[in-house]
């Protein structure tokens, strides 16, 4: 066990956990930020996507020891009340079915638009390819990313 000072969604947080604990489980079990989801544990599905200094990363294999000093943003911190353009576009296109993967999809999309505000179809497909949606809402996801890009 060790103490870690973290910056999560603009707030300083301290946790006392095994240094190998992935950020995903620190968020979910220790800090009650459960919007970030567990899907596969091996960075293959993208359900656990968060922002680390603005970049989309998979939190399920990121040890907490590697996250100290970085700005962590989770779905809960993307906006106060779901007013981020990506979240708004997700609602406008009524994207979710079961909804489980969508926080990860939204975090990946928000990071994409941050570095590339006007992505082409191919760029969207490439950026979003790491996020599995078992319900198959891919077309709406793509349409929502385009809508969000127009509103940014």
């Amino acid at each position: 066990m060790a103490l870690f000072n973290l910056n999560i969604n603009g707030k300083s947080q301290q946790v006392d956990v095994d240094p190998a604990t992935p950020v995903l489980w620190v968020l979910r079990d220790h800090l009650d930020l459960v919007g970030t989801k567990f899907g596969c544990g091996i960075s293959q599905c993208g359900a656990c996507t968060i922002h680390l200094d603005g970049n989309a990363v998979r939190s399920c294999q990121l040890p907490i020891s590697a996250a100290e000093g970085a700005q962590i943003t989770t779905i809960e911190g993307l906006s106060e009340n779901g007013e981020h353009p990506v979240q708004q576009a997700w609602m406008e296109h009524d994207v979710p079915q079961c909804g489980y993967c969508q926080a990860g999809q939204i975090m990946t999309a928000a990071a994409l638009l941050q570095r590339n505000p006007n992505p082409s179809d191919e760029e969207i497909e490439n950026a979003m390819n790491g996020n599995i949606c078992r319900c198959g809402t891919y077309l709406r996801i793509k349409a929502a990313v385009k809508t969000a890009s127009q509103k940014l």
């Binding site: 993307l78 009340n81 979240q87």
Partner: peptide, 29 residues
């Protein structure tokens, strides 16, 4: 007439909606 998903906002803002998100005082894993 199309109506939006009543849980849409909760889903896109990461609210606890699933059993896996549930936690109570004294809960074990």
């Amino acid at each position: 007439k199309s109506k939006k998903n009543v849980d849409g906002e909760k889903i896109v803002s990461g609210k606890p909606l699933f059993a896996i998100d549930h936690k109570v005082e004294g809960m074990k894993y």
